[in-house]
């Protein structure tokens, strides 16, 4: 049972059933990053998937752009408690990128330019649930929001949607990534409020 805070509630915001517990709506696009924003030219950009056999499959920027591109309309939820509803993205589905990847590992480590990592089970990247996104609201993705490209896995808290994404490494175990080693939950379901350890 919570304690009551005397006189609180006069400035309350309307509750919204589309918001997961403990989240509030924002019209801004706040930023959560642990370090400086890397600046990566698309000419130098690449994305690769590395499997347990050591096989590496790599896409250049132009090769990524030649793949089927999907429009994604989704809500996003940050562990720092803001949510944005109905955001618009464009990107390439991870289903497309994993189509010819041969792996029996069940977990992945997402790796970013700048050294950031985050762990996501493979099944959460497949089945129309995750993309490599490079456009937000009709514009190229800003560097501070992860441009030129970030992972978009919006059914999990947004730290899982790694900015400046550079590759995915298959893991047999669910090993913790950067924020997961620094206090955040291994999985991060916003509807279950899986924020912290």
């Amino acid at each position: 049972m919570a304690v009551f805070s005397r006189g609180f509630g006069a400035r309350r915001r309307e509750s919204d059933p589309e918001l997961p517990p403990g989240q509030y709506l924002t019209e801004d696009f706040p930023v959560l990053s642990a370090g400086p924003t890397p600046r990566i030219d698309t000419a130098d950009w690449s994305f690769s998937i590395t499997t347990e056999s050591g096989a590496v499959t790599t896409w250049s920027w132009d090769e990524l752009m030649a793949l089927p591109i999907e429009d994604v309309h989704t809500d996003i939820h940050c562990v720092t408690r803001w949510s944005k509803l109905g955001t618009s993205w464009r990107g390439v589905s991870l289903d497309t990128l994993f189509a010819d990847i041969d792996t029996s590992d069940a977990y992945t480590m997402i790796e970013s330019y700048g050294g950031y990592t985050t762990n996501v089970p493979l099944e959460d990247l497949q089945g129309g649930k995750a993309w490599i996104a490079f456009e937000f609201d009709g514009e190229p993705l800003d560097p501070e929001h992860g441009g030129p490209a970030r992972l978009l896995v919006p059914h999990l808290y947004f730290w899982k949607s790694a900015k400046w994404v550079h590759g995915i490494r298959m893991h047999s175990d669910d090993d913790p990534g950067f924020w997961e080693q620094n206090g955040y939950n291994m999985y991060g379901d916003p509807w279950k409020e899986q924020r912290y350890w």
């Binding site: 924002t26 019209e27 801004d28 706040p30 990053s33 370090g35 400086p36 924003t37 890397p38 803001w82």
Partner: peptide, 23 residues
């Protein structure tokens, strides 16, 4: 600030940031 620090030659991994924004 972080961009200036990187331009001045500070290694990115030696810069810890915490940002707040939005409402």
């Amino acid at each position: 600030v972080a961009r200036i620090l990187v331009d001045l030659g500070h290694p990115a991994e030696r810069i810890k940031t915490e940002r707040f924004g939005g409402s």
